[in-house]
């Protein structure tokens, strides 16, 4: 897994085709989380799996994998802070985590805009956090910097 060359050309080409679809699927699962099964956590897991696939196919040191590895930790923190900020916005509607955005018709995407935004924040948090944990463990021998303590972060989504 720590082979930085990645896998064969077949795997790499297929991954290039699939990666976008996987990410869009993850996004859709998160976006419609308040209407259908799924949500930010499930969507984030799918997105993280897409990134893991990229690392397996292209190796950790180049291609999209390297980019994700570099930014995962920061994106993870941004996702968490975005969630907190959205939750604090609930104070404008009376209490913490309250839905503050105007609500549309039931059973449409706009029925609960604040939940959609919260789900997207969780998507970012879980996707990046899970991937950061994976890369910390999978690339352990390569990097050998003390970032492994990072990997507990998935625990508060």
């Amino acid at each position: 897994m720590s082979d930085s060359q990645g896998m064969s050309i077949v795997v790499r080409v297929v991954t290039r085709w699939l990666l976008g679809l996987i990410l869009i699927f993850g996004l859709a699962v998160a976006l419609y989380g308040h209407l259908t099964p799924g949500g930010g956590f499930a969507g984030g897991t799918i997105v993280a799996c897409g990134f893991v696939l990229a690392i397996l196919a292209f190796g950790g040191s180049r291609g999209p994998g390297a980019f994700f590895t570099r930014w995962a930790s920061a994106l993870d923190a941004i996702g968490a802070l975005a969630f907190l900020a959205l939750a604090i916005l609930g104070f404008t509607a009376g209490a913490f985590l309250q839905q503050w955005a105007a609500r549309g018709d039931a059973f449409t995407l706009g029925s609960a805009p604040s939940i959609v935004l919260l789900n997207l924040a969780i998507l970012l948090k879980v996707g990046a956090g899970l991937f950061a944990g994976f890369s910390a463990i999978a690339l352990f021998e390569q990097t050998a910097d003390p970032d492994t303590a990072d990997s507990e972060k998935g625990a508060d989504a």
Binding site: T148, A149, S151, E152, D156
Partner: peptide, 21 residues
């Protein structure tokens, strides 16, 4: 259960990281 799975995931990851160390 969803929350508990997330917690379990964090625990398992930390445990694997510690095993590597």
């Amino acid at each position: 259960v969803l929350t508990s799975i997330v917690i379990g995931l964090g625990l398992a990851m930390l445990m694997v990281a510690l095993s590597l160390r």
